[in-house]
Design a protein around this nucleic acid. Sequence first.
DNA 1: ACCTGAACACCGTTCAAGT
DNA 2: ACCTGAACACCGTTCAAGT
Lengths: 185, 185
Amino acid sequence: VTSTKDRLVLAAASLLDEGGPEAVTLREVGRLAGVSHNAPYKHFADKESLLAAVAARELRSLAGRVDRACRSAASERAAIEAAAVAYARWALAHPVRFKLAFVRWGLDDPGLGEAATLARSAFFRPFLEAARAGVIALHPARAATIVWASVHGAVDLHLSGHLAKDGSTATPGDVAADIVALLTA
Amino acid sequence: VTSTKDRLVLAAASLLDEGGPEAVTLREVGRLAGVSHNAPYKHFADKESLLAAVAARELRSLAGRVDRACRSAASERAAIEAAAVAYARWALAHPVRFKLAFVRWGLDDPGLGEAATLARSAFFRPFLEAARAGVIALHPARAATIVWASVHGAVDLHLSGHLAKDGSTATPGDVAADIVALLTA
DNA sequence: ACCTGAACACCGTTCAAGT
DNA sequence: ACCTGAACACCGTTCAAGT
């Protein structure tokens, strides 16, 4: 019951996971979806638009994970920590998708914009609730951006191999714990 | 007096700045360096190795900038803030080079590893000195990783368009200021 | 030791045509 | 409305050969 368009997106995502970005060719995407090598052009403007659809799907998935993690937390502070941990776990588990989702797009796909807003909102929600409960002193948007940037940056540095391997630097998990502790102190 | 190898790296960097990653083709690199389209293969194993050399050059440049910014600071705290600001300014001024420097490389170029260590050391130095002076309470490597990750992440989110445009989220500069204030409080 | 030119396989994109 | 097959321009890489 999946449309050709959906199958194309799924095929691209699958190729991305298995062989990295350079493995995603329109010819292979078509073959995996059971259509010709240029059927994608009937559903997407070009290759970049197809990849943007993959990125959007990924961001919506991330938003869902963060949302569920927050909801099952016992306190406002635990919800913040759960959001940070869920974000880091997702990124470390799917490094290629993570990198794709934060590429500088040369287009402005409305679906991609909506998905990005969804992910941002999911991450910000526990901060708004913590601020209402008086758990954090800082402006919630400022606090949320700091934690988001910290976790995102730690993961990116880790994935690109820039954090020292000898243990002299902190891991993404350390950074998440430290920053939440600092903000709720 | 520049060698062909140097000219190839410079040509690649120039093309990268002007037209983005997809503008860097070995044919155009060769043409710009005044050699044939496959002369690069006499100096680099493949295209990825050439790009790794560009990334290494960029990381050394970043290390120099951070170093100079720290040295001209009036206090230990000012040195930390200067390092963070220098990092963010460099990244925002050269977004394409920034993205290239933090790509997940499928090779282990020794020159790239050394350059990465150089950049990391430059960023960590003011934290070691601040810890010695008693300005920060946290372990210096932990504090440095937090600030580094925060600034790096804020810039990456900003460049990929994930920070809201309506001003509801903080800018990379805000994040740098907030995180340094939190750590030295 | 360093470079060139031809050649090969592959890819994104376009186009005319099919149902 | 959706898809196909041929074709085009382009790119990374290899190879035989040149100085």
